[in-house]
Lab assay of single mutants.
Amino acid sequence: GATAVSEWTERKTADGKTYYYNNRTLESTWEKPQELK
């Protein structure tokens, strides 16, 4: 079946920190989402 992984995108802030952005829920998080573990 379909997985939720594609909803999350790994992004970088202007100062180079990595965060994760969810295209479906429009939420962002510093922690790696469960779906990516």
Rank of each mutant, 00 (worst) to 15 (best):
T13Q: 04
E31A: 08
T13K: 03
D15E: 09
R24I: 15
S28Y: 12
W8S: 00
W8D: 01
T13M: 05
Y19D: 02
L36M: 10
L26Q: 15
K17N: 07
Y21W: 10
Y21P: 00
A2G: 14
Y19R: 01
Y19P: 01
T3L: 12
E7R: 03
E7L: 04
G1T: 12
N23Y: 11
Y20M: 01
W30A: 05
N23H: 11
T25S: 04
P33G: 02
L26R: 11
K37L: 15
S6F: 09
Y20P: 00
L36N: 08
L26T: 10
K32D: 04
Y19N: 02
N22M: 00
Y20L: 01
T3P: 13
E31W: 07
A2W: 11
N22T: 00
G1E: 12
E10P: 07
P33H: 02
T13H: 04
A14V: 11
R11N: 05
V5H: 14
E10A: 08
L36P: 05
L26K: 15
L26W: 09
E7N: 06
N22H: 02
E35K: 05
E31N: 09
N22E: 01
N22F: 00
S28E: 13
S6T: 10
E27N: 04
T25P: 01
W8F: 02
L36W: 10
W8R: 00
L26F: 15
K37N: 13
T29A: 08
E35L: 05
W30P: 05
S28D: 04
R24Q: 12
P33C: 03
L36C: 07
T18R: 05
E7F: 07
Y21C: 05
T3F: 10
W8I: 01
R11M: 15
K17Q: 10
T18I: 14
Q34K: 09
T18E: 03
E27H: 05
V5T: 13
P33I: 02
T13P: 01
Q34S: 13
L26I: 02
E35V: 09
G1D: 12
L36H: 08
Y19I: 05
L36F: 12
E10R: 04
Y21M: 04
R24T: 12
K32V: 10
P33R: 01
A4D: 14
E31S: 08
E31R: 07
E7H: 08
P33E: 02
W30G: 04
E31L: 10
K12V: 14
S28T: 15
Y20N: 00
A14W: 10
L26V: 03
E7G: 07
Y21F: 15
A14N: 09
R24W: 11
E10I: 10
T18P: 06
S28I: 15
Y20H: 02
E7Q: 07
P33W: 02
G1I: 14
E7V: 05
W30H: 06
T25V: 01
E31Y: 10
K17S: 07
L36Y: 11
E7S: 05
T13N: 09
S6Q: 11
A4T: 14
L26H: 15
T9F: 07
Q34R: 08
W8Y: 02
E7I: 06
A4K: 05
Q34T: 12
K17V: 09
T25F: 02
S28W: 15
T3A: 15
E10D: 03
K32P: 08
T25G: 01
W8N: 00
K12P: 03
S28A: 11
T3I: 13
Q34N: 13
L36V: 07
S28F: 14
A2M: 14
N23G: 07
S6V: 09
E7D: 15
G16M: 03
R24K: 13
A4H: 12
G16D: 04
R24F: 14
G16I: 00
K37E: 14
N22P: 01
W30R: 04
T13A: 07
G1K: 04
T3H: 13
W8A: 00
P33T: 02
V5Q: 13
K12A: 07
Q34M: 12
A14Q: 11
W8M: 00
A2V: 14
V5D: 14
W8Q: 00
K17W: 06
Y19S: 02
P33Q: 02
Y19F: 10
S6A: 11
T25M: 00
A2R: 03
A14Y: 08
T3E: 13
E35H: 08
G16Q: 03
K37T: 14
E7T: 05
D15F: 06
Y20F: 08
P33Y: 02
N22R: 00
T13G: 07
G16K: 02
E35F: 06
T25L: 03
T18A: 05
G16H: 03
A2T: 12
T18V: 14
Y21N: 01
W8V: 01
E35N: 09
E7Y: 07
V5E: 13
T29M: 09
R11V: 12
T13S: 09
A4S: 12
W8H: 01
D15H: 06
G16Y: 01
E35P: 06
N22A: 00
E27M: 08
G1H: 14
Y21H: 08
T29H: 05
N23S: 11
